[in-house]
Design a binder for these strands. Structure first.
Length: 430
RNA sequence: GGGGGGAUACCGAAGCGGUCAAACGGGACAGACUGUAAAUCUGUUGGCUCAUGCCUUCGGAGGUUCGAAUCCUCCUCCCCCCA
């Protein structure tokens, strides 16, 4: 199977600018391909992961990927796929974000000699004067054509557009020119002839191709992947608590792992194809196993395992798996304070003096209230009486249980739980 | 400006002198079942030293009464109709 055929099989091809020629062009020799990433935050999230993984596939197939961080375009704000004008980021935020993204990208792409290249479009855009830009770049754009792009149409609320839109500023209107010029610049300096992006980037990509042809007669290609959406139409990688980030400080490996474990049956096949590097045969086996026995959830487990390892490494995966075992019932034993701290990184904790454990003054009811698992003693009592109170994942049934050092999970930590999922730590300082 | 209706616990909504910590539904919480799904079933759902005990709650402030969410007065806010 050719590289492009593999992308197509995985559902990663939404559109290309040359459906007939691109395949042969890519097979002929190693090519240089670029994709851009917006520095809207100091970490990538699941949405941008897809793009990085596509670049990674290009690299693995012997091509040369360029990851572009939009230090310049990030100052403007891409209107594509956005229904509202965006707030501008401050210079300091941008710099921090660019640095954060660059660091994360190293995990996915090999930037060593001759490998992938990391560029920041601020490096060639920052020194331009407005007049120069208008003469050299702006002159090549027809406003009529720009107005016809989806990203603009939807914001202007024109007939036939998907949304009514609330207008857009001249600043955002100009975004397309900057991104178009990026492509031309990368072609001139790095021999890049292919830009890849999410399907919402189609307008910007074709703008770059047009500009390349006008300025240099360059033959450029474009390719888009579909946006990651779930079967219910919502965006992949978003939860009610916000986005799923790649930065373990923002989204712990456990939460990351859990997000994928909870993938709907209807979505997991697509995710395996688009996000993992498993062979087609293996993915088809998983499809078959899922159809046979969906309750087994081997697909979800495999997806979560692969992605967590890819993003957080073997170590992060181990913590996530250990945390999963514990959060779903395994009794907590033989762990030290550090391990508990890692596993329960997302869980609230409270400190109490060690004396409370020794003098027999801390009942299970008091402890539940203390850590916030119950909002009153009556509530705590109810929880215990209904069999919903656990210490170190062992049910505490007696209402008058007094906590003592033997209830500690490690030297100084006790793990309290109410119901199936709500955990809190109680730490006893000496 | 005139007339009418209303404000109840997280939300909706009963209650209209004692048997009201307040029906019922939703939500939430806990349990069972289950695929860490969906559905279903059971229990709980003001606070306290958990007891047919006390305290705080029915828009706010007063009053009548042995006793008020329930009656009266004033105030605040909301809705409807007529000007």
């Amino acid at each position: 199977m050719s590289f492009l055929a593999d992308l197509r099989w995985r559902g990663l091809l939404h559109q290309t600018t040359d459906d007939t020629g691109l395949e042969a062009w890519l097979e002929a020799e190693p090519r240089t391909v670029y994709a851009g990433f917006d520095p809207t935050a100091d970490s990538l999230h699941v949405g941008s992961l897809l793009g990085l993984l596509v670049l990674r596939r290009f690299q693995q197939a012997g091509h040369k990927p360029i990851a572009l961080v939009g230090g310049a375009t990030g100052m403007i704000g891409d209107p594509s796929g956005k229904s509202h004008e965006r707030n501008l980021l401050s210079q300091e935020d941008l710099e921090r974000n660019v640095a954060g993204l660059a660091e994360q990208m190293r995990q996915f792409l090999d930037f060593d000699a001759g490998g992938a290249i990391l560029v920041n479009n601020l490096d060639w855009t920052g020194s331009w004067s407005y007049l120069e830009f208008l003469r050299d770049v702006g002159k090549n754009f027809s406003v009529n054509v720009m107005l016809a792009k989806d990203s603009v149409k939807s914001r202007l609320g024109q007939p036939g557009a998907a949304t009514t839109g609330d207008g857009m500023s001249y600043t955002e209107f100009s975004y397309m020119l900057l991104q178009a010029y990026d492509f031309v610049h990368l072609h001139q300096h790095y021999g890049c002839q292919l830009q890849a992006g999410g399907s919402d980037q189609w307008g910007n990509i074709t703008a770059g191709i047009d500009l390349g042809r006008r300025m240099h007669g360059a033959p450029l290609y474009g390719l888009t992947w579909p946006l990651l959406t779930k079967s219910d139409g919502t965006k992949m990688g978003k939860t009610e608590h916000g986005a799923i980030w790649l930065d373990p400080q923002r989204t712990s490996p456990y939460q990351f792992f859990q997000y994928w474990i909870n993938t709907d049956d209807a979505d997991v096949g697509g995710c395996l194809r688009m996000l993992t590097e498993l062979e087609p045969a293996e993915i088809e086996d998983l499809d078959a196993a899922r159809a046979e026995n969906p309750g087994q959830r081997t697909s979800q487990r495999r997806l979560a395992t692969e992605l967590t390892r890819l993003v957080h490494g073997a170590e992060g995966l181990a913590v996530a798996q250990q945390a999963t075992e514990i959060f779903f019932g395994a009794e907590i034993a033989d762990l030290d304070d550090t391990q508990l701290g890692q596993i329960f990184a997302d869980v609230p904790s409270q400190q109490l003096p060690r004396g409370r454990l020794l003098d027999g003054s801390l009942t299970i009811v008091d402890a539940l209230v203390q850590v916030g698992l119950a909002k009153s003693k009556g509530d705590a009592r109810r929880t215990v009486q209904q069999g919903g109170a656990y210490v170190n994942n062992r049910r505490v049934a007696a209402i008058d249980t007094v906590l003592s050092p033997q209830h500690l999970a490690s030297t100084s930590t006790m793990v309290l739980r109410s119901g199936k999922k709500k955990y809190a730590l109680l730490q006893f300082a000496s």
